[in-house]
Design a protein around this nucleic acid. Structure first.
Length: 261
DNA sequence: ATGCCTCAGCTCCTGAGA
């Protein structure tokens, strides 16, 4: 079973790249679940037919201009939930479903803008609500994957310039404490289960030749539950789509689990 | 310096992203 996450920074612009990427992946092994973030379109504009024609089911939760998330799957899903139950939010950031016996939560974590800002306060509140909800979910869902654009680095290994960016957004102690609290629920960073190239990142600034100079951060993550940990076979970041013409600023992250898709 | 790209929208500038 292959599960992936990709912040595509406008599905309107990137739909052809998403379809191309799914087709290219299928040459090796098809992607069973793809969590998308930053659709930047309303529900009525979601290209459901295009995914259907490509052989995928789709669940989506859109929003005008900002945010918006989707789950693209090969198998039909059940129990679709949008956003964090009980947490009042006017932004479309989370979509969950059960696919082939795995509870998948795809999320676009708040950016937070800058420590101390209103958006940072919202990010902290959102992270707390997410954690308490995931904690409850894990009681009844042993096979759980929480993946998406976290907008948080784990540690200095995830940052191209850990000294220059110390304490800035995505790198603050407060954000990292929240990320570790998710780990504390019994989740594992699938990426670090495996040997990885040095300076592995999932996002690069569009400006200043960020990608070409590999000035990036690893902020897109796949966390897996204890029951799935022994089934993990690989976790990689696919830098190839970042080399596309008109790329997203994020690259897809992929985990392979020894489970039937 | 708060920009350098990129995207959406009350579109020829602005806000937001990260």
């Amino acid at each position: 079973m292959k599960i992936a996450t990709w912040n595509i920074n406008s599905l309107t612009v990137r739909l052809p790249q998403v379809l191309d990427w799914l087709a290219a992946q299928a040459a090796d092994a098809p992607v069973d679940v793809l969590a998308l973030q930053e659709l930047k379109l309303t529900d009525d504009k979601f290209p459901a037919a295009a995914f259907q024609e490509a052989g995928y089911h789709a669940q989506w939760f859109g929003q005008k201009t900002y945010n918006g998330v989707a789950l693209i799957t090969r198998a039909p899903v059940t129990d679709v939930v949008k956003n964090i139950p009980g947490f009042v939010d006017d932004m479309a950031r989370v979509i969950s479903a059960t696919v082939a016996g795995v509870r998948v939560i795809g999320a676009y974590f708040p950016n937070g803008q800058a420590p101390g800002s209103d958006k940072f306060v919202y990010k902290m509140r959102w992270l707390e609500a997410l954690r308490e909800w995931v904690r409850a979910e894990m009681v009844s869902q042993p096979n759980l994957v929480l993946l998406g654009d976290y907008n948080i680095t784990f540690d200095d290994l995830d940052v191209w310039d850990p000294v220059g960016l110390a304490g800035t957004i995505h790198c603050t102690d407060e954000e990292r404490a929240h990320l570790q609290a998710l780990i504390g629920l019994g989740l594992t960073d699938a990426f670090r289960l495996f040997a990885q190239p040095e300076k592995s990142y999932s996002w690069w600034d569009y400006r200043m030749l960020g990608f070409q100079k590999n000035r990036g951060m690893r902020i897109d993550h796949i966390l897996i539950s204890e029951a799935l940990k022994p089934l993990a076979r690989a976790c990689t970041i696919d830098r190839v789509p970042r080399k596309n013409k008109q790329p997203s600023d994020h690259a897809p992250v992929i985990v392979t689990l020894d489970l039937p898709g």
